[in-house]
Design a protein around this nucleic acid. Structure first.
Length: 427
RNA sequence: GGAGAGGUGGCCGAGUGGUUGAAGGCAGCCGCCUGCUAAGCGGUUGUGGGGGUCAAACCUCACCCAGGGUUCGAAUCCCUGCCUCUCCGCCA
């Protein structure tokens, strides 16, 4: 959420931002109209309240002294008359204004390249090299099925499309990766491990920006089941840990890492990545989340991105880093780096991590502030997060990049100990 | 799932219709005092909005879990929701 005052006083900057994102200004205009009505009414209501407070105090004094207050009471009644209705209208305007404000996306950072879609994302660096195959590399789903470690068919039977069963070495690989990632981030990068709820309430989803705009992308339990929502990413519960809190300046920065399953409807993705592990309704992910002071938040983004990259490096996976252009930027983000790993069978890079600085956009929605000792008032923290990494996609990348002509797959050095083997072969 | 109790400021805790943004204590901050000890004395310390100012001062509205209601007036009464605790039931 943007600062109300900022939107009001510097609407032109919001318009510029919306244009960069390729979005219209209807919502902004609707908001501004409601907001000006709200402020006018607020002034009136507050004046009335002030009058009422004064008279009411007088009533109290008279009664205390045992004097007759009936004439003042009459006046008081008159003043109070009509306040209730006006307050009701004010509440309505409040709600409506907030509804609109919650739909306005974040302002892209000045360093974000302007562009309309992903084709204009900017490649920043490439690590490693494409593997050399003396044979036609297979898709990861064929490798996985051939090895008997991924079972999409039975998953379809027990759940439906976009689910998978990991079996044997496939399950172990998934588990080894989760452990590996968590170990690196906790031991080498200084993050605190969190194992959060994966069902959350609406306030949490609103706090990080999934609601109200992206309700259709979320799995939801019925009202009889309390209307819980299934998290699409650990970003939601972990960022909301500090919702409506005032942190101490000394507490910052806070670094958290969390493994969770993630659930996404993929409602707008019909026909996209229908095969394989790339786009599942349920997948595992290790997430990195930071709460930091505003001053250094862009350095923190670089560091967080480097932390995610470190996993790919240690696994020996060829990848590149791109900076999303304004048109491809997510709703809540001010700046995002995507890590894209090489998929040889598809012959292209695919996203495996998305690292963003949300600045105070989520913090304002979620009321996450900090206090500087000795200073009056509070400031919003900056929140950041990134995948470190999406585990299923990492499995897919390992299968494709390290496949051998005989159908086996070489296990990266970093995982061999926990896998108990250096190669997955057909049994 | 059933029965009961409760949710007040950084913390503890008073307050059941009228100068209560909220007693008292603790903690913090500022000052004073003191040749004795984590001592004593005085003062001070919430958040958000609107107005005001170069910036302050200042004025004002709201906030005692959340949302409604009753009333001239609510932390205080009523309703709903959420959460915590105790007992019973069920259960990984």
């Amino acid at each position: 959420m943007l600062d109300i005052r900022f939107v009001r006083e510097r609407a032109d900057e919001v318009v510029t931002a919306l244009k960069k994102r390729g979005e219209g200004t209807e919502i902004l205009n609707a908001f501004l109209a409601i907001e000006s009505q709200r402020r006018d009414l607020l002034k009136i209501v507050e004046e009335k309240r002030q009058v009422r407070n004064t008279i009411t105090k007088e009533v109290g004094n008279l009664k205390k002294q045992g004097k007759d207050a009936s004439s003042v009471l009459k006046e008081a009644k008159k003043v109070s008359d009509g306040i209730a209705e006006k307050e009701e209208v004010l509440r309505e305007l409040d709600r409506k204004g907030m509804d609109e404000l919650l739909l306005i996306p974040n302002i892209p950072h000045e360093s974000v390249p302007v562009g309309t879609d992903e084709s204009q994302n900017k490649e920043l660096r490439v690590w490693g090299a494409k593997p050399d195959f003396s044979f036609e590399p297979l898709n990861h789903w064929d490798i996985g099925e051939n090895l008997g470690i991924l079972d999409f068919e039975r998953a379809g039977k027990i759940a439906g499309a976009r689910f998978v069963i990991n079996k044997g070495a496939g399950a172990r690989l998934e588990r080894a990766l989760m452990n590996f990632m968590l170990n690196v981030h906790t031991k080498d990068h200084g993050y605190t491990e969190i194992l959060p709820p994966i069902l959350v309430n609406r306030e949490s989803m609103t706090g990080t920006g999934q609601l109200p705009k992206f309700e259709d992308d979320l799995f939801k339990l019925s009202e009889e089941s309390k209307g819980f929502l299934l998290i699409p990413t650990a970003e939601v519960p972990v960022t909301n840990m500090h919702r409506q809190e005032i942190l101490n300046e000394n507490d910052l920065p806070l670094y958290y890492t969390a493994y969770t399953p993630c659930f996404r409807k993929e409602a707008g993705a019909y026909g996209k990545d229908t095969r394989g592990l790339i786009r599942q309704h349920q997948f595992n992910k290790v997430e990195l989340v930071k709460f930091v002071k505003p001053e250094g938040s862009y350095d923190e983004l670089e560091a967080l991105t480097a932390n995610a990259e470190e996993i790919l490096k240690r696994l020996g996976l060829h990848y590149r880093v791109v900076c999303l252009c304004s048109g491809d930027l997510g709703f809540s983000a001010a700046k995002t780096y995507d890590l894209e790993v090489w998929f040889p069978a598809q012959g292209k890079f695919r996203e495996i991590s998305s690292c963003s600085n949300f600045e105070d956009f989520q913090a304002r929605r979620a009321g996450i502030r900090f206090k500087k000792p000795g200073k009056k008032g509070t400031e919003f923290v900056h929140t950041l997060n990134g995948s470190g990494l999406a585990v299923g996609r990492t499995v897919a990348a390992i299968l494709e990049n390290f496949q051998q002509e005989d159908g086996s797959v070489i296990i990266p050095e970093a995982l061999r100990h926990s896998m108990g083997t250096d190669r997955i072969s057909k049994l």
